[in-house]
Every structure is written in structure tokens, then in C-alpha cells.
């Protein structure tokens, strides 16, 4: 097997374990490259089907192309889409673009809080999330099956052991588990897989007038990088050479040394 095949097979195994163990199960889809590749892996695991709902947390600040792409795939791939939005906070206007919240606070309200609302409303016991270890320090310490308490908090100082592909699948009522089937992939691996499988991705990832998005988020907090990469192989080539870290264009991470740790501890993906 090639390395990419090994990565794929491991992810499929994890996805099938999650499907066997958790009901109701959902998949968090940011419509970025990672969770879209993840969605593709789900279709592989279930022979073309997506047998559980797909959740998109819409902060209302997403770049319009992202929503277009989302709605197109929803139709073409026959997805049961749940859109989560913290309408109360949006009505109140307590957001970073309005100047009434810090970037991190805005993330926490519009993403983490909106996600918690969806989890409680649908009583999800398992959530599949497309994070990877190579993205960031605290994500590199994650488990494939990561328990969250009732308020979605991550007890990262006391994580259960996990080995030999035997996962912690029993949890107390009211808690849920984040399942991370892409944990062992790198950014380049994801693009290699997108190339190999011809998975459609948002056009924002490709260079337009010398710039492209490397990591997608909300418009006010996501920056573009200088790039001439107009095709997937060109992106792969560019990433193999770069020394820039992937999330360096995500402004909320840079607010303080522990900005991301605090976000993740309280339930951010």
C-alpha cells in the first residue's frame, strides 16, 4: 500500500468505528479542504452514502463562495445538512467585525457556542471533526476519540489512553465524543488525496491575481498568501517548499500565546 492508501484506510476504519458506536452521530463540515476530504472518506466508508447529518456552523461572515460550494455539494452528494448559527449573538451584534468582541471571543460565540447549541438540540453523542495533528500544538496532542463533558470542555490535562486502534467508546450521558479521523494526515497529504480522488474544493484555494487562501475561515480573520498555484499539483508543490505554517493566516490564533489552547479547551474544533 502507498502511504496515502494507508492514511485513507486508517481513516475509514475510524469512521466506521464511530458509526458503530455513536448514535446520533454527526459530521462537522467547515466546507474547507480537510472536512471536504473527510466527507469523501465517509462516502468511501459507506459505499457512496453519508448515513448521518452534516453540520455547518455558519457565522454569517463566511466568504460567499464557501456557501455556494456548500449548497452545491449538499444537492449533488445528497447530504442531510444542518446549519448552525448563533442568531442571538448576531442579533445583539456582539462580534469582532462590529468592534464589540475580540477575535477570540467572536470565535467562541459564533463557532463554539453555535456548535454547542446544535449538539444539545440534536443530542449528538459523537461528532466527526476534520482536525489534523500537524496544524497546531494543542491539536498535535489530540486523541482519535476525544471525550468532551456536558459543556463541551476538553480535559486535555487528563486524556484517556488510546492505543492499538482500541478507542474509548463508552461515555457518560450528556457528554459527547469528538472523533478525529484525519488526525494523522498532513496538509500536503490532504491535497495529495484531493488530487488522487479528484475531490471538488472551493475555488478560493487557487491563486487569483497572485494570491490564494491556504486556510479558510471567516472573511474578517482569514488572510490570503502570495501564490501562483492555480492547480492542485501546484499547491502540493508550493506546500512542499514553504516554511510558513498553515494557520499563520488565521488572525484569531495570533491574539496571544494561548489563544488557541483556550479556544480548544472550551470546545472549539
Amino acid at each position: 500500500m502507498t502511504h496515502l492508501e494507508k492514511l485513507e484506510q486508517q481513516s475509514i476504519y475510524i469512521i466506521r468505528e464511530a458509526f458503530n458506536k455513536f448514535e446520533p452521530l454527526g459530521l462537522l463540515w467547515s466546507v474547507g479542504k480537510d472536512s471536504s476530504a473527510l466527507l469523501w472518506l465517509v462516502r468511501k466508508a459507506f459505499f457512496g452514502h453519508v448515513p448521518f447529518p452534516v453540520i455547518h456552523i455558519d457565522t454569517s461572515y463566511k466568504i460567499p463562495e464557501m456557501i455556494e460550494y456548500r449548497d452545491r455539494l449538499m444537492r449533488e452528494w445528497n447530504l442531510n445538512l444542518i446549519v448552525g448559527q448563533n442568531q442571538e449573538v448576531l442579533a445583539r451584534g456582539e462580534t469582532y467585525p462590529n468592534g464589540s468582541a475580540s477575535r477570540v471571543r467572536c470565535c467562541s460565540l459564533l463557532k463554539t457556542e453555535a456548535l454547542n447549541q446544535v449538539i444539545h438540540q440534536h443530542r449528538f453523542s459523537g461528532l466527526i471533526v476534520g482536525i489534523r495533528r500537524d496544524e497546531e500544538g494543542t491539536r498535535s496532542k489530540e486523541r482519535y476519540f476525544s471525550p468532551r463533558d456536558k459543556s463541551s470542555e476538553w480535559n486535555f490535562k487528563n486524556q484517556p489512553p488510546e492505543f492499538w486502534d482500541q478507542f474509548n467508546t463508552d461515555f457518560a450521558p450528556g457528554t459527547h465524543v469528538r472523533v478525529h479521523p484525519l488526525l494523522h494526515w498532513t496538509e500536503v497529504n490532504v491535497w495529495e488525496y484531493i488530487h488522487h480522488e479528484k475531490i471538488p474544493v472551493v475555488s478560493l484555494y487557487f491563486a487569483n491575481k497572485g494570491r490564494r487562501y491556504r486556510s479558510l475561515g471567516c472573511a474578517p480573520c482569514s488572510a490570503t498568501v502570495a501564490s501562483e498555484a492555480k492547480t492542485v499539483p501546484e499547491i502540493i508543490d508550493e506546500l512542499r517548499k514553504t516554511k510558513q505554517s498553515e494557520r499563520s493566516t488565521r488572525a484569531q490564533d495570533q491574539e496571544s500565546e494561548d489563544a488557541f489552547e483556550r479556544l480548544r479547551q472550551s470546545g472549539y474544533m
Binding site: 492505543f163 482500541q166 478507542f167 474509548n168 457518560a172
Partner: peptide, 13 residues
């Protein structure tokens, strides 16, 4: 290979 769970958590292998 085997693992043992005590209650809800993996505890041995």
C-alpha cells in the same frame, strides 16, 4: 493483543 476498560475508560492493555 487486548485492552481492558474499567467503567467507561480504557485502563490497561
Amino acid at each position: 493483543r487486548l485492552v481492558l476498560a474499567d467503567g467507561t475508560m480504557l485502563a490497561g492493555g
